[in-house]
Design a protein around this nucleic acid. Structure first.
Lengths: 240, 240
DNA sequence: AAGTGGTCTAGACCACAGG
DNA sequence: CTGTGGTCTAGACCACTTC
């Protein structure tokens, strides 16, 4: 037997899809809906929670319930036991610093980082190594000049750089984006990694932002082909 | 003012972390917890919902509430308005079929597809084109032999292949994984795409499984460098 | 038979956005 | 001031699992 709140959610969802309540419209208050459907407000609230989960409505205290979308969002969930899985490097690998300096963002760097031209960034060059294996990748870390002290911490406890930033400077990575594309490896880096210049590489640009959207770290990693692959696993839920 | 159910959830979470209730232990029934905390069962249930969301407990009707993890899972959510965003090809692009045949999985193919050696698969070769632009990528689709009829549908309505599979054969892609790595492009494909053989490419292998875990489509796409990049955006929530 | 979480009722008070 | 969703109480019945 299907619970009432599911039944009610489905019917309201159908009505939203049919356009009975267009996007932007305000639904009747919960109390009134309860009377209309001849159920208690509790049951209505359970139904509303379902619709909210699906991204169809937005509920605001003292304001009301607004229709925000006509069709349920297709929600894909990636669940990680720890953020480390986002990085996907084996635990025994370590980041080794090669060189650190400070530079002003020119047009090219500003585009890469997604920042303003002229801002000053600490640039930390590293390689990721694994005992008994060839190096995994070449990594360039960019952090705002104020956080240049990060370079002293690289490789500590095997922690990834963004975690060091969180611990050292009290930041929180609330929003992470990763861009992945193919390129070829320039000569000095190729030498460091022990491969031919011009080798195909997987480039991953990761950008870390705090809860206010401020960019506080960008890492650019170049992985020679065959040494690394990146996996994304997503689950999709049926809506009903 | 923090609601009571949040307060209670936090304290129980702290106790789980401290090991007061180890993984596998059963929490007191909701009714008893309500008495212990001097609140109604509703408030306890709200608290339990929070803990369940965080993956700390599992609730089963007529059985009880079991501790399933000591620390909250770091939940990263990728929300897509439609599954098409997973594919990330502009809407005006289209898949064009080049050739279709059937082949038996040898060791190499079985490894690529993540299937058993000896199973038979329809192999459909395609290129993804965009009007007025050079081709975007070379795509090889593999589907179980029973679904070989898919090849007649390729490019229809501009729908991605997995959607055609869903519509045509009543399947549902509940679980999708994507592997990304760099490679170089072999000669015949390079010619088709109008680039030099040996050009660096981004390879994306996508595997689609139905709710029972059965693999029903694998696509292998090779994107010449500079023509395509893949973006992942994740949000992380603080657990209190 | 006893005990469990899921569902549901019929109330209540609150703080504050909006007219 | 009114109306709103968020929080909360104190009950209830159910279907099924476990004893």
């Amino acid at each position: 037997m299907k619970p009432q709140y599911r039944e009610i959610a489905e019917q309201i969802q159908a009505e939203i899809l049919a356009g009975t309540w267009p996007v932007g419209a305000r639904l009747a208050p919960e109390k009134l809906l309860a009377e209309t459907w001849h159920v208690s407000r509790f049951t209505i609230r359970e139904a509303m929670s379902l619709l909210e989960e699906r991204g169809l409505i937005s509920r605001k205290r003292r304001v009301g319930t607004i229709v925000t979308s006509r069709e349920p969002a297709d929600v894909m969930v990636q669940q990680l036991n720890s953020m480390h899985e986002l990085l996907q490097y084996p635990a025994e690998t370590r980041l080794e610093m090669v060189k650190a300096d400070v530079q002003e963002a020119d047009v090219a760097l500003a585009r890469l980082l997604g920042c303003e031209v002229g801002t000053r960034w600490a640039k930390i060059l590293c390689i990721r190594v694994s005992p008994g294996h060839p190096p995994i990748c070449w990594t360039e870390l960019y952090v705002p000049e104020d956080y240049a002290g990060l370079s002293d911490q690289i490789g500590k406890n095997g922690m990834p750089a963004y975690r060091l930033m969180e611990e050292t400077f009290g930041l929180f990575a609330a929003d992470i984006t990763a861009d992945l594309f193919a390129s070829t490896l320039a000569s000095p880096k190729a030498q460091r990694l022990g491969v031919e210049p011009g080798t195909a590489t997987l480039v991953i640009v990761r950008r870390y932002r705090d809860p206010d959207g401020r960019l506080f770290e960008v890492s650019v990693s170049e992985h020679p082909a065959t040494r690394f692959s990146y996996t994304i696993a997503l689950k999709r839920q049926r809506q009903d």
